[in-house]
Design a protein around this nucleic acid. Structure first.
Lengths: 201, 201
DNA sequence: ATCTATTTGAAATGAACGTTTCAAAATTAA
DNA sequence: TTAATTTTGAAACGTTCATTTCAAATAGAT
């Protein structure tokens, strides 16, 4: 722990914490939690085994840190997408397209890290389940706000209330990213996006 | 192996293979492949450790047998749904409703066993990946046929070709079952189904 | 240089892992 | 009964697991 208020300031964490988390995330995302060994993490981060335990506590805690970093990264990406969109429906399309590009640029797509976590660990560990529920709520709020603005501005229909469309989009996004694990054809994936959006227009 | 043509017919497999697979499936489905230990399977099946190896080869082979049994079970369920539907769109609705009922009847829904397998193991083991690709093709063919009939009979629109709608439904179904892991509100889930189907009408 | 805290290396912990082994028990057809 | 085969029990295999330990090395601040 850094304690900058202290008078003595001896050796300080030298490694880049964010980088280490990013390296660990890559392994966890690829292999899943249970198939990832501590040795895998030592190899991927270049950190000493003891250092990992000193700095992150345990395997599960490091995993949670990776989940949070991934969540933060994509929350930023999602927000940035909004800046490039002239309206809500285009924002949603850009959102799906962002994931599409990531999916096809990775020849062996691994799906969404958080969705994989849900599939592997939801309702098994309390901290994980809480994280997943919070992430779901965040995403739904983000989408509901987006749909709401689209409905106010007239580019999204008002057949259903914003929260209902938000849940539909949340569900669709998960399915889309699951599908991308085995379907790598860009046109096919584009077709899914178009069909998903059709309902909102 | 049973060899009924043999002259001598000594002790024959006594346990119920289908039952054992069903019991193993429950554990694999709940915990996933990697978190399931051989001891878990011994406990769940009541079989001796050696008997499992004699009869199923190895953990992965038993897992594959479970996947195949699950696949077969739901292929039958899907086919049966068609018998109760007066047209294609209703068949698709009944299909989603069948999953909905299963999801809410299980207070801790575990999602689709095969989708969880994809999330955990796709592109890691060749036999698993082959199974998943075959299952995907089966499902897409089933859905395409269904959509095609709906389009011929007029209850599904022809804005997109049947294969495109099939992929959309495949993706939507995966997302729907992923969503059900944490969303247990029946009305919310019903809303997703309605929205998914809206596009086809 | 000295104090303080971090990082490292390497070994050790004990438990759990998937899998194998094999003799004894069980079962059934001949 | 005898012969054939499966099932069982229990132990053992060697490996890997997550985690701990601790002395030595390192480095910033005084």
């Amino acid at each position: 722990m850094k304690r900058s208020f202290q008078i003595d300031m001896p050796k300080v964490e030298t490694f880049n914490r964010d980088l280490v988390v990013a390296q660990a995330t890559e392994v966890f995302h690829d292999k899943g939690y249970n198939a990832t060994s501590m040795q895998d993490l030592v190899d991927a981060t270049g950190l000493n085994r003891s250092s990992i335990y000193n700095s992150f506590g345990c395997k599960l805690h490091l995993y949670l840190d990776c989940l949070k970093a991934y969540q933060y990264k994509y929350q930023k990406k999602n927000s940035n997408v909004l800046l490039d969109a002239k309206n809500a429906i285009e924002a949603i399309e850009l959102l799906f397209n962002m994931y599409l590009e990531e999916m096809i640029s990775d020849s062996n797509d691994k799906g969404c890290f958080i969705t994989n976590c849900k599939s592997e660990m939801a309702n098994h560990d309390d901290k994980i389940t809480s994280f997943l529920n919070r992430d779901q709520k965040n995403t739904l709020d983000f989408l509901e706000d987006l749909v709401s603005r689209g409905q106010n501005q007239g580019d999204i229909n008002t057949n259903k209330i914003a929260s209902e469309y938000a849940l539909y989009l949340f569900s669709s996004l998960q399915g889309f990213r699951m599908t991308g694990i085995l379907v790598q054809d860009k046109d096919h994936l584009k077709g899914i996006i178009k069909t998903i959006l059709q309902t909102l227009i």
